[in-house]
């Protein structure tokens, strides 16, 4: 089969040697593509015509290995690709520590050395955008206000994306449920801002760039039923003034 294919190609090859010449300027009838796309297509077609079977097999292997490795690296770099439950501006990750976690979450945990919270311990919620969907920016002031789902303890932490930048550790990176100043009805407002603020001030961890919030609920009953969380049960993130 492979021999006959190679023979066919060998016979086909001299049959149309003049084909590439008139195609360059006129835009061939079979390829009405825009400029760069057509050039790539031409290149591929020329390559395909000249390639032997061995070259094609090597090409397929290289394509498979390269593309497979690149996509695997991309999918397991940074945060969990899926498995989250959206609650307002927050994303809850109830299953990333359980044996039922998807393979991507396990790979992400292994690559980062993360020790995820399990259902019996608590639950992690992250937010990288405010309630209107804009990305959290270190130059802006945000109000994180409301209540948290029931939990024995919770902590709210702010961090930049990626690894921590070298330098002095900021004096405050988060609040715990005990430290917070509350209104008389139990609600609270945490002001996330680069400037000093009254009340619960959480300083921005970096001068510019995207930041994200992590809300960790410890010993919480909602971990087993994160899908039932209502957006009024998690703190709202409202954007205030932004420095230019």
């Amino acid at each position: 089969m492979r021999m006959t294919l190679a023979d066919t190609v060998a016979r086909l090859r001299p049959a149309r040697p003049a084909f590439p010449e008139p195609r360059s300027g006129s835009g061939g009838a079979d390829a009405p593509r825009p400029g760069p796309g057509r050039r790539v297509a031409d290149l591929l077609r020329d390559g395909g015509r000249r390639a032997s079977t061995v070259t094609l097999v090597l090409y397929a292997l290289a394509l498979g290995a390269g593309l497979g490795l690149l996509t695997a690296d991309y999918a397991t770099r940074g945060g969990y690709p899926f498995g989250g439950v959206r609650v307002g501006a927050w994303t809850a990750w109830p299953r990333v520590g359980s044996p039922g976690a998807d393979p991507y979450a396990r790979a992400v945990n292994a690559r980062r050395g993360e020790i995820p919270l399990t259902i019996g311990e608590g639950m992690l919620l992250t937010a990288d955008q405010d309630d209107t969907g804009r990305a959290l920016d270190a130059a802006c002031t945000y109000a994180v206000a409301g209540v948290t789902p029931p939990a024995r303890a919770w902590t709210l932490t702010v961090a930049g994306r990626g690894a921590r930048e070298p330098g002095p550790i900021p004096m405050r990176e988060g609040f715990t449920a005990t430290e917070i100043l509350r209104e008389t009805d139990g609600r609270f407002v945490i002001t996330l801002s680069p400037e000093v603020q009254p009340g619960n001030w959480l300083p921005m961890p970096r001068p510019r760039g995207p930041v994200r919030l992590a809300l960790r609920l410890y010993d919480t009953p909602v971990a087993a039923s994160a899908g039932n969380l209502d957006r009024s049960a998690v703190p709202a993130i409202t954007r205030g003034a932004c420095a230019e």
Partner: peptide, 22 residues
């Protein structure tokens, strides 16, 4: 099979292989 067909076949095989490797 035309050369382009062979090339498409090789690309398809590469994509399937990429999925497996992934």
């Amino acid at each position: 099979m035309s050369p382009r067909g062979r090339f498409l076949l090789a690309t398809l095989a590469g994509l399937v292989l990429a999925g497996l490797v992934h």
